[in-house]
Design a protein around this nucleic acid. Structure first.
Lengths: 159, 159
DNA sequence: ATAGTTTTTGCATAAATATTCAAAAAATAT
DNA sequence: ATATTTTTTGAATATTTATGCAAAAACTAT
């Protein structure tokens, strides 16, 4: 029992290290990550890194300049947020209408929350509040005029 | 100018369709997505699908049952929370003890609330309730045996 | 301790994905 | 219209990632 937790700890350390490495560096491939790990003293191959990434549920995202990089899921937002959310809006929005001081956006099923988040994050001017169901987003503006203007802005945004 | 927007529209339609398809189905590979698109009348190859996925900034995430699937970015934030909370626990927890059906966690000052939230969010099995002061967390389990087991789990979690 | 079980890992390779390059289509300018 | 530039695409292929399998390590029970 003298080496009880040796391998286990080593793996845990490695997983933690992977999270740190991809947080601190732009890691484009598993091969690159493997090199980072080796340089920190871990004896590891791409195969294991692939398994680790699966276990950590890391994701590979399109980054600036035609590159890809690994990231923590849900954390990719800090990079290139505008492009990303614009893309989400562009492809998920079906219709945009304005009614009184509301703008009503219909989306493909399940995408309303994502669109709402996109709209909030993109921080369009004068948005008072946003609420989303499954395929519908309500955006509250100060008045009818602003709602109309915002609907137009949104339409331009999604093409 | 007679065919002004023909290709453009076709691509946009395809991108929209891709978002819909991955929203409605569990799409594991680009090859599979290509087949879906072909079955909907798009004349497309894996190479183009790869480019579309990059443009849409879709992500491939680890799914249940050793599978992968494509998803819209920003929809999987719960996993990141997990990683982050594990880190919180790892760095803030000082001691873990069990007394009767309680597990008592001592933390660095001011971190108990955070640890409590982490424990709740991580949703360890059979936790009945969690309460936190400034540097102490009480975790209520159903009985002494479960408290002992949970204390052990927690210890492993924080290393 | 020893035997049995589970987990982790590397190697080799299968599978999947990204990209180069050239051609065609589309958009733009004249 | 024609010429020019930009965008889109497929085929082939390079690159990257995932996995079957066997061996080793770690854990568990006795």
């Amino acid at each position: 029992m003298q080496e009880k937790e040796c391998l286990k700890n080593s793996k845990k350390q490695r997983l933690n290290t992977i999270v740190r490495i991809i947080s601190e560096n732009s890691v484009e491939t598993q091969g690159q990550l493997t090199k980072y790990l080796i340089s920190e003293g871990f004896d590891v191959t791409q195969a294991t890194v692939s398994r680790d990434i699966k276990e950590l549920r890391l994701i590979k995202i399109a980054d600036r300049g035609d590159k890809y990089r690994y990231a923590l899921p849900g954390k990719e937002s800090n990079v290139d947020i505008r492009t990303r959310y614009t893309a989400v809006l562009t492809h998920a929005v079906i219709t945009i209408q304005n009614a009184s001081n509301l703008v009503v956006v219909k989306t493909i099923p399940g995408s309303a929350q994502g669109c709402a988040m996109a709209i909030e994050t993109l921080d369009f001017d004068r948005v008072v509040g946003v609420i989303a169901g499954d395929d519908t987003v309500f955006i509250a503006m100060n008045n009818e005029k602003e709602a109309a203007a915002f609907a137009k802005t949104l339409m331009e945004c999604v093409n």
